[in-house]
Design a protein around this nucleic acid. Structure first.
Lengths: 147, 147
DNA sequence: TTCGCTGTAACTATTGACATTACATCGAAG
DNA sequence: CTTCGATGTAATGTCAATAGTTACAGCGAA
């Protein structure tokens, strides 16, 4: 199974917000046009980002803004905000190993810490990348395109 | 979404094979009893492990063996063998960003390399852990249990 | 008070994971 | 050379999550 596209969509949202914040009002419809999904999908993700304190969404008038400078928001923040994995556990351990079997009874002890360290490696890597990094590289490419 | 339990089941299979190889014949039914899933699930995973050259499965008479010493099989080998993620891509990028939008057209350039580096961090971590590590710790716990 | 937009419920389609039954086929042992 | 236990695999079903879509109540500013 892959990690839900909510994650890349959320990043895309930030890229749009930052790139167009001076030119357009950032409505869910506008963003949905760039991402190419249904506006309701965008609104749901915006709710998750808002709950995590990463964006502000203006009711009534409409419009999205980043709640913090993009340098201070890491990909891990976004990843957790959109709840890309269940219970924070990357790996789905088979539910009921047989406790009547020595291996079934003890496999968790041999494996849990290793799975955890793998997940930690991934999360550390995510934490080292900020939205500013992604947006900068994207906008640089846009600028080159026009040249 | 979480990574399929096929991954932890495959590791469990190796732990059973190594632990019981001198006492029992390792049939899919026997292993299924320890993992506590349907034997057909075990057989399917065994097919994937066999295709990757990690185990040998005896037709007719039955029985599973590891094809290589467990010290030489990393968790990454197992992960890839059981096809835990599609196309080898950990992240599901939203399918059709709007190419009429500068951001939609260029978001891949800003993001792809970062997603790749995160996946690489995870895979490197997996590569540093062998089945021997997992089996050793599990068997050590079994031994302590009996003391 | 109107109007555009958000927030959210409800419903559907699709997909993958996992479970289960059934059976053809294999290989060794009697 | 037949029997028997086991594998290989197709077919089918259930369930959960993703993602799409429609519909509409509620908000806030002009």
């Amino acid at each position: 199974m892959q990690i839900s596209s909510r994650f890349t969509i959320a990043i895309h949202i930030f890229a749009c917000v930052d790139t167009f914040k001076d030119q357009f009002k950032l409505t869910s419809d506008f963003i949905a046009g760039s991402v190419n999904v249904n506006p309701v999908i965008i609104r749901k993700i915006l709710q998750q980002l808002k709950a995590a304190g990463l964006v502000t969404v203006a009711r009534g008038t409409g419009g999205v803004e980043a709640a913090r400078p993009l340098e201070t928001i890491t990909l891990l923040d976004v990843f957790r905000a959109v709840d890309s994995i269940e219970d924070g556990q990357l790996f789905h351990f088979h539910e009921n190993p047989n406790s009547a079997c020595p291996v079934g009874r003890n496999i968790h002890y041999g494996l849990d810490d290793k799975l955890q360290s793998i997940q930690l490696a991934m999360e550390n890597s995510m934490q080292g990348i900020t939205l500013a990094d992604v947006v900068r590289d994207t906008q640089r490419r846009i600028a080159n395109e026009e040249a």
